[in-house]
Design a protein around this nucleic acid. Structure first.
Lengths: 296, 296
DNA sequence: ACCCTACTGAATAAATCTTTTCACAACGGC
DNA sequence: GCCGTTGTGAAAAGATTTATTCAGTAGGGT
């Protein structure tokens, strides 16, 4: 469908938004700055004069002028008119309220049903988090005197993996326990009282994980559990439990809210000890740069 | 606060529409002509230059200038700004609804700042998805005549992993290309024209992935790219590209919107061929049950 | 018919916006 | 490290817009 010439100038009838998307790769840094500002407040952020619009995106007027030409408009006034025509069409259309979304995604489209469900899940999850518990868990996770173990179930293994990659950038002494439960006894052997086990367990709950949590708890390990709204049996031995709403119109469960909680935990741990984290990031960058040269 | 002039010009905070209604009796014939044109196409008919706006209402510019002063604005530019602010408020309506997610969590708490950012990312991502492209990509991903390869970068490997686990439940002939690029040539060897490569690449973009995408594309492989708002260089060879907004108040990028897009794709592929998928889920359950007995 | 008042838009001057040019800065390749 | 390329914004020239003035016109009252 999409030909190469389209990607240069965009279809004549395309919306400004579409044109920006089509051209995004070809935009320079400042131009993207403006593009982002416009997309973030579309179309209002493009309906003032070029001077004002440029100033509020914190770029110069020539940058805006150049960009609209890249998008295929002869000049700023033409671009302005295009936005206005779009606005006119949108407002006179039936779905005035959700103009921003509805303009491109029909309400009945799977995308929209899905995002609505996810929004509800996030809302539910958030309103069921006890900030005190959250802050406590963050303290524990940020404490490098404790070794941190990560483990997930069949589906949530990917989340544990994600957690591992990010926590690795933030702190040391982390272990991702592979999913194969056959190897778990070896890890248990090394766990000490005070160590932390961050565990993901959503339905269908796995007996293996429960057994692991029990054994760890017996050894004085601090178990933090991220589970679903119905709560894994692991909750009985966990010191901190977080519930994530996961239902979506589908045969399986969504892990968006789970991931949201995870990312927030990571961000909080990172903030907890920012100077050290920052130093780690810098060193990490250096090493990646070195590795890149390596590969060449 | 309320002066006698308010009764003439309307309350300071009133919308332009309200001000026009309030002043309508005091307007002259030509001014009403313009007022009607504006109300009929609100607010677009007031967002161009005074010259254009006057011409399309078939009145003179002084008429418009006089009228906006009657409404209480110092001049046309101020009137223009007022309309723009209204538009902004309308369009950002759904965003403000997100503020209610806050529930009990204090507004300044990291959780809240984070969730707000994520909400914006999801919204941005959604409004930048072309449903046609989305539907096309789903068709391709659901086609089991094509072999499906999955690959991610350093961070997004976990997403590829997640995609693999779920796609496995939905369809056959899938391969998760491990992150170690040393093994990629073997996979490339087996790729045929028409096969699909679903690739995750968010900044910092990896040269390896770009090279892989190029080689695959040369062999006629259909590359589907999930990237960030700044677009990975892979986009140039990808048949379908999806942009996910990933910025959060943190040193790293959020992959919530990425994951949302992924889950939606999986759900769509699943719906595409529901009877078969359902049968697979049932058999999968049986096998898990059998495996459970196994382990005891 | 006459005047008076209020309204309207052509014309204009001032202000603002738009575009282009150009010099400098940042980056990547050699 | 150097050089060519590319990106960026200050500045100025050119175009447009805005506000005002003012002459002409329409309508209502006497």
């Amino acid at each position: 469908m999409s030909t190469s010439s389209d990607s240069k100038t965009g279809k004549p009838g395309a919306t400004v938004r579409e044109k920006i998307r089509a051209q995004y790769a070809a935009l320079t840094q400042s131009e993207r700055k403006f593009a982002n500002a416009l997309l973030a407040n579309y179309p209002a952020a493009g309906l003032a004069s070029i001077t004002i619009v440029a100033a509020s995106a914190d770029v110069s007027t020539p940058t805006v002028a150049r960009m609209v030409q890249k998008l295929g408009y002869k000049g700023y006034p033409q671009f302005h008119r295009a936005l206005l025509r779009e606005l006119e069409a949108t407002v006179s259309g039936p779905t005035q309220r959700r103009a921003n979304w509805a303009s491109e995604v029909p309400a009945t489209h799977l995308l929209n049903r899905f995002v609505t469900a996810i929004g509800q899940n996030i809302e539910q999850t958030l309103s069921n988090i006890d900030t005190t518990q959250f802050d406590e868990a963050v303290q524990v996770l940020a404490d490098t005197d404790r070794r941190l173990y990560l483990v997930g179930g069949r589906i949530t293994r990917a989340l544990a993996e994600y957690a591992f990659t990010h926590f690795q950038a933030v702190r040391q002494r982390i272990t991702h326990m592979t999913s194969s439960s056959a190897t778990w006894p070896h890890y248990l052997l090394d766990m000490e009282a005070g160590d932390v086990l961050l565990m993901f367990d959503v339905r269908r709950y796995e007996t293996n994980l429960q057994r692991l949590a029990e054994l760890a708890a017996e050894r004085g390990v601090h178990v933090i559990l991220i589970t679903d709204q119905w709560a894994s049996p692991v909750a009985t031995v966990a010191k901190h439990t977080f519930h994530c709403w996961v239902e979506i119109p589908s045969a399986w469960d969504s892990n968006i809210s789970t991931m949201m909680l995870l990312e927030t935990l990571i961000a909080a741990v990172q903030e907890e000890n920012w100077p050290e984290t920052r130093a780690r990031y810098e060193r990490l960058d250096e090493i990646f740069d070195a590795a890149r040269l390596f590969g060449k």
